[in-house]
């Protein structure tokens, strides 16, 4: 049994729902051992949840996919819910998203089903307490690593969760209580995703390159934290398979059936299909909020503009932490 079990329970899981996972920023420095990155599928929403509860970058919070989760607070907690609107309520009253909320002892917090977006992030002031495995608590079920038990288990009904009492993050006085309106993503709008061309893009036929960037692709129901398959015109590449090589977050690989797969946080570390390039980290996050059958579009971007946007996003969370 891991150490947190000896700590007091601050939250009890009344109903686990399909998939709720503890996620810090991810597992790094071990990918050469075949260990995947993990971490939040939507790092943008994850970061804001921490920020609104005064937690520094990297603090573990809960990624709730699709909803169905029902929790009860054992003591009063300061929380923030960001990301997808999964119809969250406290004692049947809707919880305002993207802002700090008091969750009183004895009250139940329930996630229903997607209204817009797919993954919500629940951060608690102080951060959830769990023992890191290979340097991280990021929960990867396939690798049986991380999470509250250290073994990659998703939340289960009856679990008791602990919150750090005196984390470095409890600086609520300096933290914003709500995200500014212009920081809120609108998941009801079709996703337009930034692709940095690379790898084998020159080996695709001209027709396929035209199709890649002029198609409303449809998100397939074969979509999870490893990757998201897109359905649309068949993309043809002169190369069928490659000698396996390292693959980065957001890489778009095209297997012989011509239907692209965007690789996300829990992808395998190496792979051998030709690639169009890679989504920007923020676009990979946006895609992770898409439900099956939603339309997405790819646009080719240069790295300078994308880097500027990425650094602007990260600057919000680092001004107070140094």
């Amino acid at each position: 049994m891991t150490q947190h079990n000896s700590l007091e329970a601050d939250i009890r899981v009344l109903r686990a729902g399909p998939l709720a996972l503890l996620q810090d920023s991810g597992r790094f420095g071990v990918r050469h051992l075949g260990v995947t990155q993990g971490g939040p599928a939507d790092i943008y929403s994850w970061a804001w949840a921490n920020h609104l509860t005064g937690n520094p970058w990297g603090t573990a919070n809960l990624e709730v996919t699709f909803g169905g989760l029902k929790l009860i607070a054992v003591r009063d907690l300061e929380i923030a819910i960001t990301g997808a609107d999964l119809g969250a309520t406290i004692e049947h009253k809707p919880v305002a998203l993207w802002q700090r909320t008091r969750w009183k002892a004895g009250d139940t917090l329930t996630f229903a089903a997607p209204v817009s977006g797919l993954r919500a992030y629940l951060a608690v002031c102080g951060g959830f307490a769990a023992e890191p495995v290979l340097g991280s608590v990021a929960c990867v079920t396939r690798e049986e690593l991380g999470g509250f038990e250290g073994n990659g288990a998703k939340l289960a009904t009856g679990d008791e969760l602990s919150v750090n009492r005196s984390g470095p993050g409890q600086q609520l006085a300096n933290a914003p209580t709500e995200a500014p309106k212009n920081a809120l993503p609108d998941f009801s709008q079709p996703a337009v995703l930034d692709l940095l061309p690379g790898a084998q893009i020159a080996s695709f036929t001209g027709r396929s390159l035209f199709d890649a960037f002029n198609t409303w692709w449809q998100v397939d129901d074969r979509a999870d934290r490893m990757g998201v398959r897109l359905i649309g015109p068949r993309l043809n590449c002169k190369i069928n398979t490659l000698i396996s090589e390292g693959i980065s977050l957001g890489s778009i690989q095209v297997p012989p059936d011509g239907q692209p797969i965007v690789l996300l946080n829990d992808r395998q570390t190496i792979g051998g299909y030709p690639r169009l390039g890679a989504l920007s980290p923020l676009s990979a996050s946006r895609l992770a909020q898409c439900l099956p059958r939603e339309p997405v579009r790819l646009i080719a971007r240069g790295s300078d503009a994308v880097l500027k946007e990425h650094r602007r996003f990260r600057a919000v969370f680092h001004s107070e932490s140094v």
Partner: peptide, 9 residues
Amino acid sequence: ESAGLDAWI
């Protein structure tokens, strides 16, 4: 070869 915003192959 570019492998995205944070990687080269």
